[in-house]
Amino acid sequence: MAAPIPFDTERYSQIGGIFAKLGARVKASRTFLLATVVFVVGWELVVYLFEIPSYLLPSPSNIAVEFYQNFTIIWRSTLVTAYETFAGFFFALALGIPFSLGVAFYRPLRNTIYPATVALQLVPKIALAPLMITWFGFGLTSKILIVFLLCFFPILLNGILGFSSLGTELTYFLTSTGARSKTGFLKVRMPAALPQLFVGIKWAAINATVGATTGEWVGGDAGLGYLIKFTSGDLRINFAFAAIVTLSLLGLFLFYLVVLVERQLIPWHVSQRSTSGMV
């Protein structure tokens, strides 16, 4: 859920691999759909049979009804949170990729920015949320910045890893052609870095909604996070669950958007091949 500690790119890439592997499995097995249905029906039955009060655990049908009745407010809150999430995520992309390029290919940046980001990576960025609220107020700006902070580092660190770990022999080959740096970058270095970069972007996509939600909790008066906190405080657990489900769908939407782009851009990569192989 949150950005890991530096040098732990191993975790990023392996989780990335897991996503890919499971993406394949999830897609391949219809059992997943079945499992979801069984899960939801089972949940409904448990609540019904044991007469669990809805302020403790609402049943799926309760949540659905609540969602329907409060659709307008949930939709309005979703727009707010989606705006924060997407804006922060795209700012992180727009800055993270150029920065990772700079660190990978420009020595002064590698000596300064890289150690600084590694040091900053040690700080749980979410802990800076109250500072952001104090500095930038209760509005959208502070939330966008929190989302940005949570998304920027995975993109930056995986970008650096991707752009700077071209295999030795491929580098020898590239050097022996005497290619201009721009040509070499476009035809070899960039495509070779894309898989690792996408590992970072997928982490960022997961972190984005966490950032927006937390930002709204620390200080805010709109959005799904705020709605969850507000309604659960009022003991309207049904309503809170409806908002949580919506937030989850928003998170999954962003994640699968990234997966979709990845599939278009690097259909040749191992992770993507195993997917297409399974289908």
Partner: peptide, 9 residues
Amino acid sequence: FQTPVLVDW
């Protein structure tokens, strides 16, 4: 080289 070092894309 010993390995083909071809690019997958």
